[in-house]
Design a binder for these strands. Structure first.
Lengths: 108, 108
DNA sequence: AATATTACCTTGACAGTCATAGTAATATGA
DNA sequence: TCATATTACTATGACTGTCAAGGTAATATT
């Protein structure tokens, strides 16, 4: 795990990655954490602490909302929903990423 | 300038960018600063303070060496040379970047 | 009965970036 | 000539995202 990717190279993408997952439907903290590992074929892990601070940030900025699941048994789950402003941010961030890629390629 | 690229998206690339420039020959601090703006067609500027901390880091790690130019007139210039370990780091970082790009593309 | 997994969360340290500020020389333009 | 811009270097302190470390508590597995 984390073979080659230093966290600095991923910095700034965490929120976008989370929003990208929530675009396909509500999810809860731990599940998002697992999905990121899965989506990267186990090549990258975003640490839980990093994600929880991302959730906090995204919620404060109005890009996601949260609600508690109605699990009558088992651990309670806090679900997150993407808001419409979150969707806009997501698409803008993807554009920014395409742009950034080109600049870095030119600079390296 | 800096239209779309947040510094977080570039974080971690500064040293590699500097090494990339020094690969083509010695250069001095201010010139490297200018070359980065030029290479990105004015779309990105790495701040001087950021670069000088990169130079310090790279020199401490043995990836570059420095010497004062022999300008008899005009501002003194501190030139930097890439070392062989710096060249290795540069190539490795480029590989890491190619890898990182793929992971991010998959995650976004 | 013991351990692993799920699921949440907090705190404090670390490191790269940058705003701000400063020094000092040369070049340019009114 | 005088003022301003540019070249060229550097230091300091704040900000922010990431993560190591630690914690709680329930369920599932061996």
């Amino acid at each position: 795990m984390n073979g080659k990717i230093s966290s600095d190279l991923l910095r700034g993408h965490t929120d976008t990655i989370v929003l990208g997952i929530l675009q396909y439907g509500d999810s809860y903290g731990y599940e998002i954490y697992k999905k990121i590992i899965e989506k990267s074929d186990g090549l990258y892990e975003l640490k839980e602490a990093t994600l929880y601070s991302s959730y906090r940030r995204l919620e404060q900025e109005g890009n996601i909302n949260s609600y508690w699941g109605d699990e009558t048994q088992g651990g309670r789950r806090k679900y997150y929903t993407i808001t419409s402003s979150g969707e806009q941010v997501y698409h803008q961030n993807k554009l920014d990423w395409e742009f950034t890629k080109k600049i870095i390629d030119r600079l390296l």
